[in-house]
């Protein structure tokens, strides 16, 4: 989705067309869930907090200024703050610096199109092909390890290790 299209959607939402917000939820939900899952180390909590972040973003949309930041940057910041609040409420360790680094690293605003295109091609070339399938299921379809494990009739640990091996292959080819 282009930045211009994003701005149009935001204007429509601010004009009262609530349903237009759906496009933004569809665009960013997988990223936000994985981001929160990584911070909280729990899929379900990650989904709950990603939902919370979208609701917060919707309620505060009038305070968003596209001149100051990309929508994705603003949204990921909200999600990080929601997750930090959750960790604090649940008396769990909060490493704010790490979370800030995650937020910067995962923000689509920091990525080049060429790099994205290269990753897309490399995914298709992962060997064995099941690595490509699990990468697509997790990062593209937004499925949890648990859901993917059911599809492949295996355990979540195995799915985790397939994803790690796939990422190693990708890292090697990107370096």
């Amino acid at each position: 989705m282009s930045i211009v299209k994003e701005k149009i959607i935001i204007t429509r939402v601010l004009d009262g067309e609530t349903d237009a917000f759906r496009e933004l939820v569809e665009r960013y939900q997988t990223g936000l869930i994985i981001h929160c899952e990584n911070i909280l180390n729990d899929r379900q909590d990650g989904e709950d907090m990603a939902q919370e972040a979208f609701i917060k973003a919707f309620k505060n949309l009038k305070t968003f200024s596209s001149d100051k930041a990309r929508f994705s940057t603003w949204l990921y910041r909200i999600a990080s703050n929601v997750c930090v609040d959750f960790l604090r409420k649940n008396k769990r360790i909060v490493n704010v610096e790490d979370i800030e680094r995650y937020t910067d690293a995962i923000d689509p605003a920091s990525m080049e199109m060429d790099e994205i295109e290269k990753v897309r091609i490399l995914v298709e070339q992962l060997e064995p092909p099941k690595y490509a399938e699990v990468i697509k299921a997790y990062f593209w379809e937004g499925k949890s390890y648990q859901e993917i494990a059911v599809t492949f009739n295996t355990t979540t640990n195995t799915i985790g290790s397939w994803i790690n091996r796939a990422k190693s292959q990708l890292r090697e080819k990107l370096s």
Binding site: M111, I116, R120, V123, L170
Partner: peptide, 8 residues
């Protein structure tokens, strides 16, 4: 890398 994968 996770971010790139999601964007891809």
């Amino acid at each position: 890398l996770s971010g790139l994968l999601m964007e891809a």
